[in-house]
């Protein structure tokens, strides 16, 4: 659905990095690891929040 606001494990706020990460690493060509380092998402618990996320809002939208 939407990117979780916080990391499930440590509670650090990660949601604000998603749009950047998506543009640069998911749709862009940059290396995901380097982008996460650049965004300051350092712990692997927070990194998996971004790496494993899929936006489903657009898929769900027609079925309201």
């Amino acid at each position: 659905m939407m990117i979780p606001v916080r990391c499930f494990t440590c509670g650090s706020v990660v949601g604000q990095h998603w749009e950047d990460f998506k543009a640069r690493a998911v749709e862009g060509e940059e290396d995901p690891g380097a982008v996460l380092d650049d965004l300051g998402v350092g712990r692997h618990c927070c990194r998996r929040m971004m790496v494993s996320h899929t936006d489903l809002v657009d898929i769900v939208a027609p079925y309201q």
Partner: peptide, 14 residues
């Protein structure tokens, strides 16, 4: 304290 956290993406008429 953080302004850029997306809460929900809204489509037309939402």
């Amino acid at each position: 304290t953080v302004d850029g956290v997306p809460i929900i993406d809204l489509k037309e008429d939402q």
